[in-house]
Nucleic acid binder design. Structure first.
Lengths: 348, 348
DNA sequence: CTGAAAGCGCTTACAG
DNA sequence: CTGAAAGCGCTTACAG
């Protein structure tokens, strides 16, 4: 294949000049630049990323780590992030943990990412102390999304998970419900980690504010998926004395709950109200009440934060227009959307 | 950072030996290998991918191109592909076209991918003649998924889209429907390309087999999304004399159709039956009848085909265990799943 | 089984 | 504004 020497020869300049011209550096005369570009085009020259990276020290690549790309939130985040990275000329290396501990370790624990990427984005990735040590050693810029993923020194974009849960629960309380169940993440589930703890806390706080003692029978743990929601709800119904309302920790669980309720002959919302979190694409199709969170916006913001210092900005200083207080997470707003899945409980 | 020289020095061998030992080449004595591994671990050494790629000529990276990662089919495919690539030690470079023509051109038209990846997977990517020329020039191994994406010399994994549409339509005919509408992809939509043509053909063939002339009023084009399905169905209802059944080209469109029907006061399946294609995660939640296609399996198969020759196999010869007839596409089976959204039309 | 040396294809001070 | 030269950190024949 044609390399930089071929272009230099054809354009009648040195390889250094070709390199500068092609990268748009200002220290090249217009005429020279034109000749170089013409030569490059004529030869269909494309720089070798490996050579460029080795010599220049930059990879032009960002690693994006998500628990499961097939879940609505993560797919939406990745799509938004890819868009911005693409615009900025960066490649996106995708790591879909998929609950595989081995992969998690290879990505987070080893120096695997070291010379492979310029920056790291961790989305809702559970982190153990050893992971933090390893990430810190990498000395790469990074950003996280989700309250459960906190790396000292890295900016974090997230929503207020406790507040979200309070709002959802309060909505049910305002409708007159007293027996409100919560289905959420399993502590054994690598993917759920602390987000579900925050949401449970908000749920309990809202109950407490209403003077209701949390009933352990109404609190079931499962996975953050449709089938997880189905299983949790089946378990809930098995325990007897069913709730009049269910607050699911995410829309996918809520959808699973709706399925389980239907299969048990219970109607939503006449017999049981259901509310989730996310505003999943299909929430409106299902008439699911939910707390909407801006998934794409969180991805966009995180990408911008990452790209900012990457673009010649001072790598050492996070901040700029996106982080007023570098140490504080950026918390994006959420909002209650009432649809058909929540209503007042029937009078007894 | 520590480099190969540091490891060589500590282990008391040459860098060539370190390189061989770390890569597990057989021409290294057990004792030497042990010393090298110990030294590498002690120094927390990680090879520089750029240097390794430049010297070795292999990138250990595969480009995966999808129209929209947020659509069920593509997310599912990518997840399966990532799993296999990860296991084989390959990085996954994600390109989410997202209908951005500029990105499409940058990825497909330029030699951008040239030294960046070892192989390319194109999932349901519309290809123009100029794209084919560019891809062929790259001389990289590749594989495609979907009947609409055909690159001469590249293996293709897909389903029988015409057959799928015939089966879906015949199911509705068997139930007694005669006025069967079809909602499918828009020819202006970069993402729909030929898959929707195949599905329309199957729809028409099934109608013809039943002695029914296709009614253009019952054939509406829109996008392969939930909102596309909603819009198409609204258009369908606007035209008057509504159908008794709708065959949607994918489950997401079918879900949109269900929403539009509900919002118009029509019940599914009492007033209108709806069937889709995919067996989307949520199809069972919605009780949607559909033609299931193996998304993850298509991804897995395509990944295996790609990895096979990559693993030291002869790059020139596709085939092996996965392709009996190299020129022929691998066609995976689909199956009809009848749920609650399809039923016999009401007697007039 | 192991090493010395060339080379992969760029970018970056440095000098002019 | 431009060029000569060193160097980025590996892998690969080649030789032994």
């Amino acid at each position: 294949m044609t390399n930089i020497d071929d272009v230099a020869r054809l354009a009648g300049v040195s390889t250094a000049t070709v390199s500068r011209a092609l990268r748009g550096l200002p220290t090249v005369s217009a005429a020279t630049r034109r000749r170089v570009l013409a030569a490059a085009e004529q030869l269909e020259y494309a720089v070798s990323p490996s050579a460029s990276r080795l010599a220049g020290g930059r990879t032009g690549t960002v690693a994006v780590v998500v628990p499961r790309i097939t879940r609505w939130f993560f797919g939406t985040v990745v799509e938004a992030v890819e868009d911005l990275l693409q615009q900025a000329g960066y490649d996106l290396l995708l790591y879909n943990l998929g609950g595989r501990e081995q992969v998690r370790q290879r990505v987070l624990r080893t120096a695997n990412l070291h010379k492979r990427v310029d920056a790291i984005m961790l989305v809702a990735t559970p982190l153990r102390p050893a992971d933090l040590t390893a990430l810190t050693k990498l000395k790469l810029p990074g950003v996280t999304i989700s309250s459960g993923t906190v790396v000292p020194g890295w900016p974090c974009v997230r929503i207020d998970d406790v507040g979200v849960a309070r709002t959802a629960t309060r909505h049910l309380l305002d409708l007159g419900h007293r027996r409100i169940a919560h289905i959420s993440g399993d502590p054994d589930d690598e993917l759920a980690y602390t987000t579900h703890l925050d949401r449970r806390r908000g749920y309990r706080e809202a109950l407490a504010d209403a003077g209701i003692d949390p009933d352990p029978c109404l609190d079931v743990e499962s996975q953050f998926t449709i089938s997880g929601g189905t299983r949790a709800t089946e378990e809930l119904l098995r325990r007897g004395d069913p709730p009049t309302a269910i607050f699911a920790a995410c829309d996918e669980m809520a959808m699973g709950a709706m399925t389980a309720l239907r299969d048990s002959g219970l109607r939503v919302p006449q017999d049981v109200s259901v509310i989730g979190v996310d505003d999943h694409d299909l929430a409106s199709v299902l008439g699911l009440s939910t707390i909407a969170q801006p998934a794409a916006e969180q991805g966009r913001l995180a990408a911008r934060i990452l790209l900012d210092p990457l673009h010649g900005g001072a790598r050492s200083s996070w901040g700029g227009p996106y982080l007023d207080t570098p140490g504080e997470p950026v918390i994006l707003p959420t909002r209650l959307i009432v649809r058909e899945s929540t209503a007042a409980p029937r009078a007894h």
